[in-house]
Design a protein around this nucleic acid. Structure first.
Lengths: 229, 229
DNA sequence: TGGTTTTGTGACCAGATTGTAACGGCTTCA
DNA sequence: TGAAGCCGTTACAATCTGGTCACAAAACCA
């Protein structure tokens, strides 16, 4: 089954650079959404829900850092990978130091091949769980389009993090995910969060899944992590 | 718990070069095994079963090329990727190196970053198949992805250490592992535990494997160690 | 056969791992 | 703006696991 092309939001104010990037991404089969300013970027994220954002850190108006921070704070966009572009390596260090939570950093001038590779790497990391499909496991049904989860016809109420956690599990039922892998997938790459937080959210997910009765479908694998079924 | 770090066997007689390489690999999270000569390399491949070999072309004694040829001839080591290092840049050598069966070929002086990238590339190429695979031996089935062990359709219950122990055995059924090798593999390199601990865990593994009946598949090799089958 | 070495295993306790309630800080939404 | 909801951390309890020891059993050797 052919999959819809992943969409990339390119945020870059310098037209030449933006077009080179867009050209190459389109040549690789991505759908490209362009933004010139931070405000525009934030608006387009809402409207178009891109699969990944490539973000220049120097922007007129709302800076790239601020865009990144906002996106990584909002629960509904936190899972979208962000690749930050900056002109010098010291800047990368600074940007990192600000704990903006970007998933990857690339120094300009960058090799186009390398950037493509990084875009693909980030998509590989998160995409499967965000694909607009209906995942099913036993009596659980997860509709990533409408962001709804059903268990035996009943709609379950669960928060954004629990949702992504469950989506990750349902992508490969039975597979054991380590706490680190889950943090990487569900929370994001450069985010510092205690691994015990995963346990707490697993507990919340369990409670949510059993709110209308039924067995706990989440399996703890001691010393390894968690799995669905 | 973090996934087991991939191990790299570095074969290089020049101490400075060997340590630079080892330092960088360790910084990247790999476990490094060092060898100075071809003979030593061949021995360590048996003992440590590294995930990948980085091999200098010019070695005292058995040459790099010869080591490569031997490893690529033997059935049990053929799958291990080999990256050859050489000071010479002539096309001829490159061809000869690849003909011998090396999986990649890097010319000295090399960029460390590039070499790391190639190491990772080779591991990506082979690792998924061995890590995600379902190992089988007689009526025992071990699924590393779901962390489950079956014996004749029944799910076996075994702790983390027993699981790793069994996984090690099933990687190479029939192979005899010394207590030291098992400690190294299952417990970790720089951990001090009595070798008798291995015996105790072998006992626990045996009990776990027979919890639903069946023969004991673990063989004791007096004075040497243990093996599966 | 008797003595020696090696291996098997039950029991025990220390420490690690996990489940979960509670809390304070933020964000979101009406 | 206030209330409700969500998040990450922490602390504590319950549970499980791992390493050691001691002694029994088995294998080996002369």
């Amino acid at each position: 089954m052919a999959r819809e092309a992943p969409s990339v939001l390119v945020v870059e104010d310098e037209p030449a650079q933006r077009e080179v990037l867009a050209y190459n991404l389109e040549a690789e089969g991505f759908r490209v959404i362009r933004a010139e300013t931070g405000d525009e970027a934030l608006m387009l994220v809402d409207e178009e829900t891109p699969d990944i954002v490539v973000l220049d850190w120097m922007l007129p108006g709302v800076s790239g850092i601020e865009v990144c921070r906002q996106l990584k704070t909002r629960a509904d966009t936190r899972g979208t990978p962000i690749i930050m572009l900056s002109a010098r390596s010291e800047e990368v260090d600074r940007v990192r130091g600000l704990e903006t939570g970007a998933d990857d950093y690339v120094i300009k001038p960058y090799s186009v091949v390398e950037l493509m590779a990084r875009v693909r790497a980030q998509l590989r990391r998160v995409r499967p769980s965000t694909v607009g499909a209906v995942l099913e496991f036993e009596d659980i049904k997860l509709d990533s389009e409408s962001h709804r989860v059903y268990r035996r016809e009943e709609v379950l109420k669960l928060g954004p993090t629990e949702f992504r956690l469950l989506a990750t599990f349902m992508e490969k039922p039975g597979r054991v995910w380590s706490r680190e892998q889950l943090l990487d997938r569900v929370w994001g790459r450069d985010i510092y969060v205690d691994t015990r937080t995963v346990d707490v959210h697993i507990g919340r997910l369990r409670k949510a899944l059993c709110q209308h009765g039924g067995e706990d479908p989440v399996r703890t694998v001691r010393g390894a992590g968690y799995a669905l079924g």
